[in-house]
Simulated scan of single mutants.
Amino acid sequence: MLEHGGNLQQAAQQYGRPLADWLDISTGINPQHYPIPALEPSLFQRLPPVTESLHAAARAYYGCQHVLACAGSQAALQLLPTLRPPCRVAMPRTMYQEHAHAWQRTGHEIQFFEQTPDSRILQQSDVLLVCNPNNPTGHLYATDKLLDWHAQLATRGGWLVVDEAFMDTTPQHSLASHTGQAGLWVLRSLGKFFGLAGLRVGFLLGEPTALAQVESRLGPWSVTGPSQYIASLALADHAWQQHMRAELPAQSAQLSQLLNQHGLTPTGGTDLFQYVPHPQSLRLHQVLAKHGVWTRYFAAPAALRFGLASTQDWDRLDDALTLAINSLSD
């Protein structure tokens, strides 16, 4: 299993602090989750084929014509490499690691680049995969550039796969409306923006024949009935979405300002996290953990990712950062 944010059980055991006594900002998940409605018991009693209402809500929300619900975008991420024979796949070196893991374990050859593929990598690759915006660096790829890369790949049967897990606050940059073309895949998730990671609801956007192939491999009942019900409500709640699209950028800017005040300058981020390279990131991560603040540590390059804290936790984060920075001079 790869290392991920949100591994709070591990932190609690390692540092001997009860789960309830942690401020977990390691995931980039919206701390103000979509409100969970009362649920009818029948949702738990029936087998849950994916309903047309859920797909209709997703098509409307993402602005696409073809979509397939799955048990989180992780399920689609792991399945896509099985649809091609072993081939050459290019992706950024610093990115959500599950992508490389999924393609490598199914026999594909991975070539890494730092941020943007050059012409040689594009010409040599059968699949190009990026997170947009990138996790954890926050780098945002221009839509025109992505579509140009897709056009080059598609001429020889190649794919462009774009993971848009953190795109919801900036839908104008999404490739969702362009899906339906052969060789263009987009992954979306309800885990980050909606703060509903525990529902395990994601969507794969793509060309309909290819989506049918994925659906046949996923099998029946891939998304639970309660999850489908809540997801449909969240996707259709435009007022809540608009509120969050105003609220989250302000909170992320506040987080960036707080980090800067402590000499921790983010080099990138999204409306749900800030990314801070630092030569002593491991030390900072450990000291923050000793004070009950759990961050996402990256060893190469050395960096920390800070997710958003709830309003009542800002002072606690401020105090912990003071202690962590002071520890560097001890």
Results as ranks from 00 to 15, higher is better:
H4L: 02
G5S: 00
G5M: 01
G6Y: 04
L8N: 06
L8D: 05
Q10V: 07
A11D: 08
A12Q: 14
Q14I: 13
Y15H: 05
G16P: 11
G16Q: 14
L19A: 15
D21L: 12
I29W: 14
I29F: 12
N30G: 11
P31L: 01
A38H: 11
L39E: 12
L43Q: 09
F44N: 14
F44M: 12
R46H: 01
V50K: 14
E52T: 13
S53V: 09
L54V: 01
A56D: 02
A57L: 09
Y61W: 02
Y62D: 09
Y62W: 15
Q65H: 09
V67I: 14
C70I: 09
S73L: 04
Q74P: 02
Q74I: 00
Q74M: 04
A75H: 12
L80W: 14
L80V: 12
L80K: 14
R84S: 05
P85W: 00
P86K: 00
A90C: 11
M91R: 07
R93G: 03
R93M: 06
T94G: 10
M95P: 10
H99Y: 03
H101C: 03
H101N: 04
A102C: 14
R105K: 13
R105S: 10
E109D: 04
E114D: 12
P117S: 08
S119Q: 15
L122K: 08
V127D: 10
V127F: 09
L128H: 05
C131W: 07
N132G: 13
N134E: 10
N134F: 04
L140Q: 15
T143N: 11
K145L: 07
L146V: 02
L146H: 04
L146W: 04
D148I: 03
W149T: 00
L153T: 00
T155P: 12
R156S: 09
R156L: 10
W159R: 00
D163Y: 14
A165G: 10
P171L: 03
Q172L: 11
H173A: 15
A176F: 03
G180D: 05
Q181G: 01
L184H: 02
V186F: 13
L187K: 13
L190C: 08
G195F: 05
E207S: 08
T209K: 15
Q213R: 06
P220T: 01
W221V: 08
G225D: 14
A236W: 11
D237A: 06
H238Y: 06
W240Y: 15
M244L: 11
M244D: 01
Q251L: 12
S252E: 05
L259T: 11
N260P: 12
N260M: 10
T265Q: 15
P266Q: 01
T267F: 13
D271L: 08
Q274W: 03
V276M: 06
S281M: 06
Q286R: 10
V287Q: 09
K290E: 15
H291P: 05
G292P: 09
T295H: 08
R296V: 04
A300G: 07
A300T: 10
L304A: 15
A309N: 02
A309D: 04
A309V: 03
A309Y: 01
S310L: 13
D318V: 05
D319Y: 10
A320I: 02
L321G: 05
N326W: 10
L328M: 04
L328G: 05
D330T: 05
